[in-house]
Amino acid sequence: MSFLVVHDISHTYFTEKTATTALEHISLSIDQGEFVSFIGPSGCGKTTLLSIIASLIQPTEGTVTLEGKKMQAIHPAVGYMLQQDYLFPWKTIEENLFLGLKIMEIDTPEMRASALSLLERMDLKGTEKHYPNQLSGGMRQRAALARTLATDPKILLLDEPFSALDYQTKLRLEELVWQTLKEYRKTALLVTHDIGEAIAMSDRIFLFAAKPGRLVRTFLVPSELRQLPPFAARQHPSFSELFQFLWKELDSLETTY
């Protein structure tokens, strides 16, 4: 049985003047330990879908099940990472790191120790007592990743977490996230508009179209790319092949609508 199943999700946003269909009949399933990406033009509802999976929004129609159980309220097995780090500037890195533990009421010495080891894994040892504004953008995003992983979620939702970073930092962070998620055997779902990033990081890619947001195609990343960490994958000959292919697909979607 699949780990996460999205079943026939539709969602409509209402305003005083309009009702916008953000998502229409989306169904997909993700296996445990799999890394998948959502790509598509802006307005295709990929972030909405992520919010629905995180139970931050209730869909107009359809259900999401995790390990066979329907998700209704915000689930501790789901970790969510935003576009920017959103570390709380008035809390130290350590306080930020333990925030999830505190709110979920699992603030035990063991959880704290594993959170601190995550911080070390992120190469941020020694920054515990620092405030976020003393850290660089890349370091802050790494601290945010540690904060998300600290509560030990089973599935990680990544909402364009690399888009606000400069290219070099982004490549490094992709590498680190990929390694960490493989190491801790996490399932991950990445929303991105960067085709290269999607190919380099994921096992499967879901292509969405806009107006109304819907799932168009699913691509399986060839196994030789899946094995490789993102930076090495980018160098592989079949990377550019897939890139071209996806580029054309995306391009045709954007010109038709």
Binding site: A54, L56, Y80, L82, Y86, F88, W90, L99, I103, T151
Partner: peptide
């Protein structure tokens, strides 16, 4: 988005107020 971060951890309205809105 600060409130969103807290909500993804399952924070209550009071926790959102105490941890994000007030500080």
């Amino acid at each position: 988005n600060y409130i969103k971060v807290l909500k993804t951890f399952g924070a209550s309205r009071f926790q959102c107020f105490k941890e994000a809105v007030l500080p």
